[in-house]
Simulated scan of single mutants.
Amino acid sequence: MPRRMTHTGQGTHQTLKNMSYEKTLVSWLMMDGWQVFLPVLDNGHCTDILISDGPHFYRIQVKTIENNSSQVVHNQWLDKNVDVVVYFARTSNWGVIAPAFTEKKRSLDHPKHRKFIQSRKGFLREFHQF
């Protein structure tokens, strides 16, 4: 059985974990029939994932958060044309789908946000409510 024998730096390890949430979301969206596009570089555009149903395109930003559903999140995509932000709790099995908002900060438990269990079925059930 393969074993990784080299040390992974703390910053690299965190990047790998964050990217795994993006790839999980890509898989769930593809299984739902969306066309999924990954920007070569999203620096300055705040688009981790671009999806399309053919005629329409939507920009998605993916973030990880602590395990606190009443946490306040800060708007990092103002004027970036992001449509949806998907938050994944790092130490639990839930997440939140939020339409991009214009306030500087907002609580995760805002009424317009949709909480989901971190599974394809749980995510898609809430994603289809938008």
Rank of each mutant, 00 (worst) to 15 (best):
N75E: 05
H74N: 12
K63N: 02
G33F: 08
Q14Y: 08
L38H: 01
Q76F: 09
V73T: 01
H56I: 10
L41S: 12
A89L: 08
S69K: 15
C46S: 13
N67R: 07
V62Q: 05
L25I: 01
N18A: 15
N43D: 15
S52Q: 04
L29E: 03
Y58I: 09
E66Q: 13
L50N: 11
V84T: 11
E22C: 08
V86S: 08
T24C: 10
V40L: 12
S70R: 15
K80C: 14
V26T: 14
L78R: 07
T12C: 08
F57M: 13
I65T: 14
G44Q: 06
L29R: 07
S20I: 03
T8A: 06
W28S: 03
D53H: 03
E66D: 09
V84M: 11
K63I: 01
F57N: 09
F57P: 02
S70V: 14
Q35L: 12
N93D: 05
H56Y: 12
L50W: 14
S20M: 04
S20H: 05
I51Q: 02
W28D: 04
F57Q: 14
M19A: 15
L50K: 12
H7W: 04
H13Q: 14
E22Y: 01
V40Q: 11
P55L: 03
Q35T: 09
N68W: 04
T8E: 09
Q35G: 12
Q10Y: 12
H56Q: 05
R59S: 09
Q14R: 11
H13N: 11
V72A: 03
I49H: 05
S69W: 15
N81R: 13
V82I: 04
V85C: 13
E66L: 09
V26G: 04
N18M: 11
D48V: 02
L38S: 02
C46W: 14
N81P: 03
L16Q: 15
L29F: 13
H74K: 11
K17C: 09
S20L: 01
Q61N: 01
D53P: 04
I65F: 07
T12N: 10
Q61I: 00
R59L: 06
D83V: 00
D48L: 02
D32V: 00
V62G: 00
L50P: 07
G33M: 10
V40T: 13
L50T: 09
W77E: 09
Q61L: 10
G9M: 07
T47A: 08
A89F: 12
V40C: 06
T12V: 10
L25G: 00
I49T: 02
W34Y: 12
V72T: 08
V26P: 03
F88P: 00
I65H: 04
G54N: 13
V40W: 07
H56C: 08
M19E: 15
T12D: 07
V26A: 06
R90S: 14
W34T: 09
S92W: 09
T8N: 06
T8L: 04
T6V: 08
N18S: 15
I51T: 01
H56R: 10
H7Q: 15
N75A: 05
M31D: 12
K17A: 11
V40H: 13
R90N: 14
N43P: 02
S52F: 04
L29Q: 10
